[in-house]
């Protein structure tokens, strides 16, 4: 084996790369080509024909721009909410929790031991109209007597925030945990106030984690459909719900494929804009 690699020194990197490339080709590129082919078909199930049907794309945008916008707004709010909730928490874990660090990290990951669907279904019980949470909020007059939490925009965005929270928390934690505490001591020695030290040392050093967390949260959240399906009403339907319904209910595969492509395209554009703002070197770590 050793002599094999020795003799084929030049090919080793390619051999190491091969499993990953193969994986991507089989499970990403080939399905993507099929999806693209499907998105340009026309006709009715099951007799679709390839006809360069670009109207699938233009109709997709004109019929469903509302759901596209809603998906990006919900995903954006949820991403920001995740960051605002996760950062102080993992900051505390990284710098103050000491020996309890791993335990607290486990708490963050623990909900993931339960399936996504069941976790979301649990909220249906917790936030039920006749349940304790809504009851207390009504007693406190935060909600009106007929007010509710379920089947609202708030419930959908909260559901997304909850479900993607660990994707934000863990990368941010890793970047905070790697910060050399001596850098903060140095800042203090140089008469930086705790606020200045945070803004000029901790925050910039944790930026790669924030960027990674933002992407890991925003991208799947924009295509999510479970939260809107279970916690929302038809007025909160996201683009994921449309694609799901086109594939499974109306068997309109070309439209569903076209909508998937539009979603991918929009996410890619959002990603490029984001990269431009934060700097591409941070995007790649």
């Amino acid at each position: 084996m050793g002599s094999f690699f020795h003799r084929h020194k030049g090919t080793t990197p390619y051999l190491l790369l091969a499993p990953g490339v193969l994986w991507l080709a089989v499970f990403f590129l080939i399905p993507l080509v099929f999806l693209g082919y499907e998105s340009l078909q026309s006709g009715l199930f099951p007799d679709f024909r390839f006809t360069w049907e670009f109207s699938n794309f233009s109709n997709g945008i004109s019929d469903y721009h509302e759901q596209f916008v809603r998906s990006f707004v919900y995903a954006g709010i949820a991403t920001v909410a995740c960051l605002l909730l996760a950062y102080p928490l993992v900051y505390w874990i990284a710098f103050r929790a000491g020996p309890w660090r791993n335990l607290f990290l486990l708490f963050i990951v623990a909900p993931f031991f339960v399936t996504y669907l069941v976790r979301t279904l649990a909220w249906l019980n917790i936030l039920a109209d006749q349940g304790p949470v809504v009851g207390i909020l009504r007693d406190l007059h935060i909600l009106g007597p007929d007010g509710r939490l379920l089947a609202t925009t708030f419930a959908v965005v909260s559901g997304i925030t909850y479900n993607f929270f660990p994707f934000m928390a863990l990368p941010v934690y890793v970047s905070l945990e790697q910060i050399d505490p001596r850098l903060l001591e140095a800042a203090k020695d140089l008469y930086a106030s705790p606020g200045q030290a945070f803004l000029r040392v901790t925050l910039p050093l944790s930026a790669p984690g924030i960027v990674a967390g933002t992407l890991l949260t925003f991208i799947p959240a924009a295509g999510d459909f479970i939260n809107a399906a279970l916690l929302g009403t038809p007025n909160q339907a996201m683009i994921g719900n449309v694609i799901q319904a086109k594939f499974l209910e109306s068997l309109d595969y070309p439209s569903a494929a076209a909508l998937s492509f539009i979603l991918m395209g929009l996410i890619l554009v959002a990603l490029l804009v984001y990269a431009k703002i934060v700097g591409s070197e941070r995007l790649t770590g």
Binding site: D63, Q67, T233, P234, N235, Q236, A237, N241, V242, Q244, A245, K246, E249, S250, D252
Partner: peptide, 9 residues
């Protein structure tokens, strides 16, 4: 199509 549309989908 319209049946899905009325459901927001």
């Amino acid at each position: 199509k319209r049946w899905l549309a009325v459901q927001g989908k």
